[in-house]
Amino acid sequence: MFEAMAFYFFSAVTIVMFWITVTSKNALYSMSALAAGMIMISGFFFLLDADFLGVVQIIVYTGAVMALYAFGMMFFDTTREVKENIRAPKLVFLLSGMTALLLVIAFVAPIVGDHIEALYPMVEGVENPQAVGIVLFTKYLVPFEVAAVMLLVAMIAGIILAGKKMDESLTLKIDDEFQEKGVQ
C-alpha cells in the first residue's frame, strides 16, 4: 500500500516537474524543475531496492550535473525570457505521443522471454551497495575503467572548451562584437 502510494506520488511529481522543464520559458525555472524531478527519480530507485543507484542519482545528477548546469548558466543571460519560434507544436505532440504510446504498447504486451534467467542474480542477505560493488568490480571492471577514462576526457574537454578567454565578459557585450568574432 505504502509502495503504491509512494509510486503514484513520485510519478505525479516527476511528470509535473519534467513537464515544467520542457515548457517553461525561463531557463532558470526549467533547471530548478529538472533538479527537482531528478531527486524524485531517486525516490523510484529507493523503491526498487536500488539504494546505491538512488544515492548516485542524487549525488551525480542533482549534485554534480545540476551544479554544472547552474555554473554554466552563469555564462548565459538567464534572466531574459527564452524567445523561441516554435513551429508546428501539434506535430511535436503527435510525434512524442505516438512514440510514447508505441513504447507503452510494446511494454504492456507480453515480454519476450518470460523465463529470463538472471545473469547476475541478487544475492540474498547482501546489501545492495555491496552487491553492486561485487558485480561492478568483477564482471564490469573493464567498462567501469573505460567509463572512468571517458569521464576524465570529458572533464578535460569541458575545461578546455569553456575555459578559454574566461576573462572576457560575455553578457555585457554588444551583439555586433559577437558577430565580428564569429566571422573570424
Binding site: 543507484l53 551525480v60 547476475y120 564490469y140
Partner: peptide
C-alpha cells in the same frame, strides 16, 4: 538481476560526460 542497474550506472556516467562536453 543486477545487470539493469549496471547499465543505469553507465548511463549516468555517460550523461555526466555529455553534460561536461556539451556545456563546454
Amino acid at each position: 538481476d543486477l545487470t539493469g542497474q549496471m547499465f543505469a550506472f553507465f548511463i549516468v556516467a555517460v550523461a555526466a560526460s555529455e553534460v561536461a562536453v556539451g556545456l563546454g
